[in-house]
Design a protein around this nucleic acid. Structure first.
Lengths: 135, 135
DNA sequence: TTCTCATGTAACTGCATAAGTTACATGATC
DNA sequence: GATCATGTAACTTATGCAGTTACATGAGAA
């Protein structure tokens, strides 16, 4: 799939797609090819790729919107607050990353399949009965 | 303590202090008084006030810097990713808030005391021996 | 070889959010 | 009434991210 096609689907810009996928490619999870027939292809088994892997490949961006004002404040109160805050944040981050590690791409793919079936069933129901008229 | 004094200590602006403390005052944890001798005073026991209480009083700001692009996307893949992401984020947020609830202000206060003693010991050591000359 | 397609990347432009600032109103105390 | 302190609206940076433009590079087709 090309960056242009992906950007349309994701309602954004081809360059944004390339910037994002660059890290994932460098980690070896996808491949990019130039020229005719080029674009992006998956380079590993979906079952071997987790959300955690992608998070790492993206450069482990900051997880939290909250945090310290200073890294090493002189103020002892600020130091004490930072210590408590850091302990709590670290623990929460560990939980989050563990959960990310639990989710592989094939799980997401099968979830998509499930949603696809659900959508089709709903469409059939609406057409078959002529629709309830509410939706 | 006045907003002006607090802003100096925290290296910021009096108005920023007032904006922050406004929510905490509305929740009843601190009091503000105008005029001579006015300023901010604690309105409850430090042991009864946790980081979680303060987080709530501040309006429960967004915890995570990562998240969805859209709340209700048409794209089934995006829906599936959102579902996995939300589950993980919710779990991490629950852990974080639980940790916040575990930390009361008097714990932080005693941590400050501990740090104060440690700093004094270090200062005495430096002065007593004439100092090592490195710091 | 030349044309076209696709990625790679630098550089720039919004755009949203938070912090900081200014200005002035309100109320309490001396 | 003078002074001190908060309350708040309005404005000004500062920052980071998404989006965009422009062009270089490389691969394949004609």
């Amino acid at each position: 799939m090309t960056s242009a096609a992906l950007s349309k689907v994701m309602d954004t810009n081809p360059v944004v797609i390339r910037r994002m996928l660059a890290g994932i490619r460098d980690a070896g999870y996808v491949r990019s090819d130039k020229g005719h027939g080029g674009g992006w292809t998956l380079a590993c088994e979906m079952s071997q790729l987790s959300l955690r892997d992608i998070y790492d490949a993206l450069g482990r961006p900051t997880v939290f919107a909250v945090g310290h004002r200073k890294e090493s404040p002189d103020c002892l109160v600020e130091q004490a607050v930072n210590a408590s805050l850091t302990a709590a944040l670290d623990e929460a981050e560990a939980v989050l990353l563990a959960r990310f590690a639990d989710v592989s791409l094939d799980q997401i793919a099968s979830d998509v399949q499930k949603r696809l079936r659900a959508r089709k069933t709903q469409q059939r129901r609406r057409q078959g009965t002529g629709g309830c008229g509410h939706v």
